[in-house]
Amino acid sequence: MTEARRSARAYWLRVLAAAVLFIAFIVVIDVAAHGAFLRPSNIVTVLRQITYNFILAIGETFVIITAGIDLSIGSLVSLCGVVMAIVANSLHLPAVALIAVTLLAGLAVGAAAGYANALPVVKLNLPPFITTLAMMQIALGFSYIASAGRPVPLNVSVFENTGYGLFLGGLTNALHLPGIPIPVIWMLVAGVFFSVLLTRTRFGRYVLAIGGNEEASRLAGIDVAKMKTLVYVISGVCAAVVGFLYMALFSSGSPQTGTGNEMLGAIAAVVVGGTSLMGGRGTIVGTFFGALLIGSLNNAMNLLNINSYLQMVVLGAVILLAVALDQLRRRFFSA
């Protein structure tokens, strides 16, 4: 039992060390920005900015834990957004029903694309890098075809609240607190849900086991093909949620949305958050902090008026540094 206590202590020491580093980082930024960074309204801004990246990174975390990769999420954001805008424009339903049906349509498209990603992986043993690379092209192509290459503006206003409304805005206002944007609530709900799914359920355990040793998992009677398929479906669904939130935010479904650095940003958040690209190890909480670190850095550099080209350089260096530090720590503590 002393061993168990020691390993628990080592764990909390690591958490403490990470927390100290993170707080130090934030304090430095805040001082450099003359207190602008830790202002409540700015904290909310950071959370709002990382929402989309984090939700995408949730799905990517599951995929990467199985030692896979999903390159198609950016294109799926685009495709789902366009499809949902078209659906929303063509139906005449009461507000709540319209939101629900639109969202479901998007989720269905995301899930189907995820399924299509997984099929050649589990049936033909193709590398996920290839199948999702192909999907990246295919989904984007469909997105342009469906939208004829132009943004599809929403002709209804029921999504505005989802896009940029505030959660219990009356309450926060009365308490003189900054309003919490609805998308941030979506992010928190998704984070908690998928974190519980990964750490507390049979499915999550199987995902980690498959990433750790696929053959041992198969021989232990785990339906590896099904679990892997579900993982890509989750990734597609997360992309659809982001597509939905973007559509609500911009009041239109644009084929351009999601086709920038979104996919790479999500992968960066996952690896900075301590998930191993070799599979078998990773947490949603870690991914959240990965997204938060990257988001904070971006925000701080904007506050400090750092040249945006230089920002890219700094961001790349930070990604490298974070993963290298994690690797060194591992080598140090687990000999």
Partner: peptide, 15 residues
């Protein structure tokens, strides 16, 4: 083929 080496005894036993 037998173990997930990166997992603990408990997770391997109950897998």
């Amino acid at each position: 083929q037998g173990l997930v080496l990166g997992m603990g005894v408990r997770e391997n036993v109950t897998l």
